[in-house]
Amino acid sequence: MQTFPIQKIVEHGPGVKSFYFEQTFEALPGQFVNLWIPGVDEKPFSISCEQNGLTEISVKAYGPFTQELMKKKVGERLGLRGPFGHGFSLKENSLLIGGGIGIAPLRRLAQELSDLGMRFVSLLGAATEHELIFKSHFQEISTCYFYTDDGSFGEKGLVTEHLLQIIQDEKIEYIYAAGPEIMFVKVKELIDPLSIPYEFCMERYMKCGIGICGQCVLDDSGVRLCVEGPVLNQDDLKGVTELGKVHRNATGRRE
C-alpha cells in the first residue's frame, strides 16, 4: 500500500470536493484507484484528472466513508492503489452523458479526447448547480447541454429528456455514460434501437479490486467489474441481467 499526503482540496459546493495527491497513475480514462482512509475503510474511486504530476479524485458525500473523507484536511495521508480495471475506448463524434458525481470519470475522458483533437459533445445533469462539477471546463472544450433537477442551471429535468434529439442534431456516433444506474437503464432503453455503440462506467461494492474475491461479479455474465469493468460496452452488457434491478451488498446478498 502506498500512502500520499493530500496536497490540495477544492470544495465545489456543499458535500462535493476534489482531493489532489502528488502522484500520477498513468490511468486510462475510466480506470479507478482504491482509496484507503487508515482506520476507516477502503473504497474504489475513479480519477477525475491527472495533470502536472497531480491526481485528482472528486467525491460527493453519500455514505459513512465519504462523510469521513469530507473531514480530511491538507497534509493528512491517504492510501491509493491502482490503477485498476478497464477504461473507456476513445472514439470520434461521441456524446458524454454524465449524471451527478458520474461527471468525475467523464472529466478525465473529456480531457483525453480534447488532447487528441477528437470531437465530442457533453450532456451533463445533476440535482443542483454546484453538483455540475467542472461545468466551465466542459464548456471550454465541448458543446454542452446541462440539466438540473431543480432548474438552478441549464434546463430543468433529466439528461434523458431530449437525448434522442441531441444524438440526431449532433450526429453522434458513440456514447459514453457515467452516473446512477437508473440513468443507464433509461439511456439504454432509448439508444439500443439506434444501434449506436456505447460504454457505461459502472459501480459495485468491491473488496479486492484485483479480480479474485468475486464480490463485484455481475449476474449472469460472470463479468468481474473490477477487472473487465468498470467500463462495459454494449456487448459486455448483453449478459448482464441485474442492471438497474439488484446489486450485492457487503455480505454478497442481493438487494
Binding site: 474475491c213 468475486g214 455481475l218 449476474d219 468481474r224 450485492r248
Partner: peptide, 16 residues
C-alpha cells in the same frame, strides 16, 4: 474457496 465463488455466474465462468 474464497475466490470467485460467491455466485453461480462467477463459478460458471471459472469452469468455462
Amino acid at each position: 474457496s474464497g475466490i470467485l465463488g460467491l455466485t453461480a455466474s462467477s463459478m460458471k465462468r471459472v469452469v468455462d
